[in-house]
């Protein structure tokens, strides 16, 4: 029972990470029908930029190890801002170099160009920080918090709180604010959005900024749990992409739901047979796609004539 509770909690925390990245896929897909296939490398960038900010603030060299006392909640917050800012800028660069020249054209050139951009990011990270994983202490320490007999890792609590807060904020912005309504309008019909006086190009750049910043945020949230590694991106992004497909790529709430489902499934199956986690995830995808190809909360568009 206690083990189950712990697994549930870990699954939700991991799910928060997947949700952040999955929603990022939704945001750019909605506005441009493309997404960043190299999104995983943006998690890497977010994590390593944050590690570097932390080292800088601790007055250490770029390849020095981080100690627990270097990571207070305040400097972690600063590194969080730094990491998301840098990935947001990367998002702008990605859009102008790898997406805009190809989006809306026939063919899948944007798939290759975004993968290529990701490889550039990853290799740059490799050149700067090297191949070995960097342990990153949690700003909340590593003392397990005991509750009802179960132990909770503080960073998992932080991940869950931050990701849920960001996802709720996004949901409110998209539904209630002028900007959110404009983004949804662009996602549904670019020409009609232009007729409303909405600057579609600016909204699209904004979508890539937001999506990339979410990936960066996910990267540094997950780093204290998994350690920061130049190779951590691909698996995380692939699972987040699966989450978006299962939940419904065209529905932000669907992507969030898919993310948490993935996290829970992975943690619970891992309790039982760790080696079956990935198999379970991809079985779930196949089942969902067979029953509901548009995803759990996805919608088949019916056009009125």
């Amino acid at each position: 029972m206690v083990v189950l509770l712990q697994a549930l909690f870990s699954g939700l925390a991991l799910g928060g990470i997947y949700s952040l990245v999955a929603v990022g896929f939704n945001i750019t897909h909605g506005t441009t029908r493309t997404f960043n296939f190299g999104q995983g490398e943006f998690l890497v960038a977010g994590a390593f930029v944050s590690v570097s900010v932390l080292l800088l603030l601790a007055g250490k060299g770029i390849n020095a190890p981080l100690d627990a006392i270097d990571v207070t909640p305040t400097v972690y917050a600063v590194s969080l801002v730094g990491g998301t800012l840098v990935t947001a800028v990367l998002g702008v660069m990605l859009y102008f170099t790898a997406v805009r020249p190809f989006a809306g054209r026939p063919g899948l050139a944007w798939v290759m160009s975004t993968i290529g951009f990701g490889i550039l990011v990853q290799n740059t990270a490799l050149a700067i920080w090297g191949p070995s994983p960097v342990p990153m202490p949690s700003p909340l320490g590593n003392d397990v918090i005991r509750l009802a007999g179960a132990g909770f890792v503080p960073q998992e609590i932080l991940v869950l709180v931050v990701s849920v807060a960001v996802l709720i904020a996004l949901d409110v912005v998209m539904r209630r604010t002028r900007l959110g309504k404009a983004m949804r309008a662009v996602a549904e019909n670019r020409n009609a959005a232009t007729l409303m006086g909405i600057d579609v190009s600016a909204v699209v750049v904004g979508a890539f900024v937001l999506s990339s910043a979410f990936a960066g945020l996910a990267g540094l949230l997950v780093a204290p749990i998994t350690t920061a590694s130049v190779y951590m991106g691909l698996t995380l992004a692939l699972k987040a992409f699966s989450a978006a497909i299962v939940g419904g790529l065209d529905n932000p709430r669907g992507c969030m739901l898919g993310g948490f489902l993935m996290g829970l499934l992975e943690a619970l199956v891992g309790l039982w047979h760790a080696e079956l986690r990935e198999i379970a995830i991809f079985l779930l995808i196949i089942v969902v796609l067979a029953v509901k190809p548009e995803g759990l909360l996805g919608r088949r568009r019916v056009e009125k004539v």
């Binding site: 309504k181 949804r184 309008a185 549904e188 019909n189 020409n191 009609a192 007729l195 568009r301």
Partner: peptide, 9 residues
């Protein structure tokens, strides 16, 4: 032409 209202809003 064709109205193009935002169906989801």
């Amino acid at each position: 032409e064709g109205r193009q209202v935002f169906a989801d809003q």
